[in-house]
Design a protein around this nucleic acid. Structure first.
Length: 858
RNA sequence: GCCCGGGUGGCGGAAUUGGCAGACGCACGGGACUUAAAAUCCCGAGGCCCUUAAAGCCGUGCGGGUUCGAUUCCCGCCCCGGGCACCA
């Protein structure tokens, strides 16, 4: 009679496997529902974060299946990446071996959780069957100019010995993998994807996603893309030859531009210096600034400084000759690398001007106290009226932005434009364990794409693995040396591989056609199953994976492969799994088993400091192993716990007692059903209309309505479980005799059947087991979700609170259909109401049916 | 600095469209069962006042406002978390 998940779960996992109930055929027989969770990196074993995402996804997949959808629920492995290489060095193994062994182990762990995947569609991105198509896409992209090579200053991590995308550099300028390694700048020839070609579409697409995606993710993407409208303005050089173009969002302040600031890296800086004989001091400054790493360069405390380059240009509207400075705060990568300086209306320029005694000219006058060039203490960046701006004087500055731009356009001195923070995506990585970039470098022909017929370019297996730094691929001469496909002379393969985010940018499409060896994707199948209806994953991918994948989808759409504009219609971004941290003053972070019952460190006996709850991580030693959890309580308990402890989008605090609670809940259902199993099995689904029957059926159908709505419309899984708990509680209060009493047995049979149907997506193993106990012959997971009967669920009597002047003074029980007059009459007869109305006149009564009766009196 | 979230009992959380604040669970207390404990089942519980109960009052970060009625809407703050940031 005791609930032993260990006896139950394996059996049902095997049964689901044998019967293939979760396989999704290529042909549609019902409306499709593509449910996807972000695929795991095969790091070795699953962690609680995986348990959480995959449980949420599985709940939805299982639920939708019972709602009549043909559910497409695949899984695979994001299998390329740096940890495999590090492990190879550490354990003297091969990255491939390490990766495939991890996949095998983790696959087993996922099966133990009872997730309803279609395992026939499993893919691993490190397999040539997968990455060969990525190489083909790359060749297309080269032809389309979407993939291109350029020399660029890039983020470089000494630890990784590779280039990083901007997205992979932490806020403090460290590497996203090696949190303590500062990222350097390095100039290299690199491959890029022209994501900026799609930048407007990436922004506009947010309209399509609004509602289906969490607002904060859209906001993060908007910030990341960083669109700003403004103008490019041409400043002719004072020498008469050439010009400098700047980007500004404030063309309205152009009349106040009194000097020019340029990024130290800008080639014209040294050009000016040479011409004016200021090479020494300018050179020193440029040298000093460029030696600074990203962190110091963009650090908050960085003082604004610069040097006069010796050059002059001309303000195109005032005609004045203005000096050109090199300034450390101007970024070469953004805009044109040069900015017009308007000290009166930009705080940075203001500080710079005061430091170097440059003129400050107020051209925007705010309402109230007039600004004074000489005495103002800070720039005025807000709105105002234009002054000292020629024909624009008196105009509102917002209007002025457009007017000045139009004026510049008419004179050929500039034009309206838009700038973005988003840069093209650098995809080259100097790594072995990634997809080879299919090009060949020939001395005579230059960069030659590998011909399609020669794809895939397969990673060589035999590689030297040692502690040597750098890309091991670069030393595999027999792989590198190939004849040039064009001239046949000896040439060399590209040894860079793709950023692993390239693989994760299209895996969701490949699941639909995973075994196709003729083409990457069959457009017909894509139209059938893409896009993803529901995607589940963590916020940490808001600006990387989720932007890259949207870009890739749009490119593949343009190639006629991907349907629709967006890959993921709905996104649920789940919170982190957190746990309290414990810190020993001597030994640092402690695992809970390293602390005794009194809260002392087992190693040294010092009092351990209990810290706040933080994301589970090995380094903080606050992790719980899912395998131990499953072994002890079973997968169903793990699933119920993560779904019940917090709503999906919020962080979840791990609690041992919470897990106990989930286990107790399942045990309670188990005992309830097993004890009554024979009675339920032999009862018939029939009932009269006695009070007891009505009461039982009312609870059943009310719960069903609530649970259905909570899962389907609100994604509130915790309250759905709470409702099931309430129903179980009420079934415990039913007299034992009622279960075998013919009058009530039918209603109770219905209750248990519906209970198990509702439980199934949350705790599928126990639900199947109990389904058999009560005489079920088929698999519960293949049955349709029961339909709630609203008429049965309806309350015939409701308790209505009565407010007198805003305070609740009494309650009455009435029919929900009673009119305001009928209820009012009862209300006025209530002694407690009369008491509070004593000596007062009723001014107004309000009745919200079934909710509240309110009386205003004075 | 700009932009998003969030703040509710001892704890996790609930309150779906402005309508009974605290569902459900955890921890806690009491009872039943037991020689006993565990497990299980039942009951109780926001705070103040009070021997107890009733009644009353207070209560959703703080201060105001709108409303018959505000956790929910508006204005002004405080705190926590996150994103962006010398981005011109």
């Amino acid at each position: 009679m005791k609930y032993k998940p260990q006896d139950i779960e394996k059996k049902w996992q095997a049964k689901w496997d044998e019967t293939g109930v979760f396989r999704c055929p290529d042909e549609l027989s019902a409306p499709k529902y593509y449910c996807l969770e972000m695929f795991p990196y095969p790091s070795g074993r699953i962690h609680m974060g995986h348990v959480r995402v995959y449980t949420i996804g599985d709940l939805l997949a299982r639920f939708k299946r019972t709602r009549g959808y043909q559910v497409f629920h695949p899984v695979g492995w994001d299998a390329f990446g740096l940890p495999a290489e590090n492990a190879a060095v550490r354990h003297k193994t091969h990255p491939a071996k390490w990766t495939w062994e991890n996949i095998a182990f983790m696959r087993d762990q996922l099966r133990q959780m009872g997730f309803s995947y279609d395992w026939d569609r499993e893919i691993a991105t490190c397999s040539p069957d997968y990455y060969r198509w990525e190489q083909l896409f790359f060749l297309w992209m080269m032809k389309d100019g979407v993939a291109y090579r350029k020399r660029a200053t890039l983020n470089w991590c000494d630890e990784c010995q590779t280039v990083l995308a901007n997205e992979q550099v932490n806020r403090d300028g460290t590497c996203f993998i090696h949190d303590h390694t500062p990222v350097k700048q390095k100039e290299l020839d690199q491959w890029f994807f022209a994501i900026t070609r799609y930048v407007e579409e990436l922004l506009e697409g947010h309209n399509e996603l609004a509602g289906g995606w969490p607002e904060n993710i859209l906001e993060m993407q908007r910030n990341w893309i960083g669109r700003s409208e403004g103008a490019e303005i041409i400043f002719p050089l004072a020498s008469g030859e050439g010009s400098i173009t700047v980007f500004t969002t404030r063309p309205d302040t152009l009349y106040g531009a009194t000097f020019m600031s340029m990024a130290p890296e800008h080639p014209m800086v040294m050009e000016f210096a040479r011409q004016s004989g200021r090479e020494k001091e300018v050179g020193e400054f440029v040298e000093r600034v460029s030696r600074q790493d990203r962190e110091t360069r963009t650090g908050e405390e960085q003082v604004k400084e610069g040097v006069f380059t010796g050059g002059y240009c001309v303000n195109p509207v005032t005609g004045s000759r203005i000096p050109v400075y090199a300034a450390n705060f101007v970024l070469y990568e953004y805009g044109t690398g040069a900015v017009m300086a308007v000290p009166a209306h930009d705080q940075r320029d203001f500080e710079f001007a005061r430091k170097y005694n440059l003129p400050v000219v107020v051209v925007i006058q705010p309402e109230g106290e007039p600004l004074d060039d000489a005495t103002m203490r800070a720039a005025h960046e807000g709105p105002g009226k234009m002054i000292r701006s020629g024909e624009f004087d008196g105009a509102d500055n917002e209007e002025g932005k457009k007017a000045v731009t139009r004026y510049l356009e008419s004179r050929g001195s500039g034009h309206a434009t838009v700038q973005y923070r988003l840069r093209d995506w650098g995809v080259s990585r100097q790594r072995y364990w990634g997809c080879p970039i299919p090009v060949i470098h020939c001395e005579a022909c230059g960069i030659v794409p590998v011909p399609e017929k020669d794809l895939p370019v397969i990673l060589p297996e035999d590689i030297p693995y040692s502690r040597e730094r750098g890309n091991p691929l670069a030393s595999v001469e027999e792989w590198i040396c190939v004849p040039c496909p064009e001239c046949g002379k000896p040439a060399r393969r590209e040894t860079d591989t793709f950023d692993t985010f390239v693989e994760s940018s299209w895996y969701f499409l490949r699941y639909i056609d995973p075994k196709n060896d003729k083409a990457p994707l069959d457009p017909e199948k894509m139209r059938r199953f893409a896009p993803v209806d529901q995607y589940v994953g963590g916020v940490e991918h808001a600006c990387m994976h989720l932007i890259y994948a949207r870009f890739f989808h749009k490119y593949l759409r343009d190639k006629g492969l991907a349907p629709g504009n967006e890959p993921f219609l709905r996104l649920l971004s789940q919170g982190m799994v957190c746990m309290q941290t414990s810190e020993c003053p001597k030994h640092g972070w402690r695992y809970s088993e390293e602390v005794d019952e009194k809260g002392l460190c087992r190693q040294c006996g010092e009092k351990v400091i209990v810290g706040r709850s933080m994301k589970m991580s090995k380094s903080k030693r606050n992790v719980v192993e899912p395998s131990e959890l499953i072994a002890r309580y079973g997968a169903d308990t793990a699933r119920v716990f993560v779904l019940f402890a917090a709503p999906p989008e919020r962080d979840l605090d791990w609690s041992e007692q919470g897990v106990e609670g989930a286990f107790r809940f399942l045990s309670r259902i188990y005992r309830l059903v097993v004890q009554r199993a024979d009675a339920v099995a032999s009862a018939r689904l029939a009932w009269d209309d006695s009070g007891e029957v009505r009461r039982i059926r009312q609870v059943t159908h009310q719960t069903l309505l609530k649970v259905t709505g909570d899962i389907e419309e609100r994604f509130h899984f915790n309250t759905a479980i709470a409702a099931i708990m309430e129903m179980v509680n009420s079934l415990y209060l039913v007299e034992d005799a009622a279960w075998s009493e013919p009058a009530t047995a039918g209603a109770l049979k219905e209750a248990v059947e519906i209970l198990l149907h509702m439980l199934a997506p949350f705790a599928p193993h126990i639900a199947e087991e109990l389904w058999v106990e009560i005489g079920g012959k088929d698999l519960l997971c293949t049955r349709r979700w029961p339909e709630a009967d609203a008429a049965v669920a309806r309350e015939e009597q409701v308790e209505v609170p009565i407010q007198v002047n805003g305070k609740i003074r009494a309650k009455i029980t009435v029919s929900p259909d009673a009119s305001q007059e009928e209820v009012g009459a009862l209300v006025m007869a209530e002694p407690r109401v009369r008491e509070h109305l004593q000596g007062k006149t009723v001014r107004k009564t309000i009745y919200v049916p079934s909710k509240l009766f309110s009386i205003v009196a004075n």
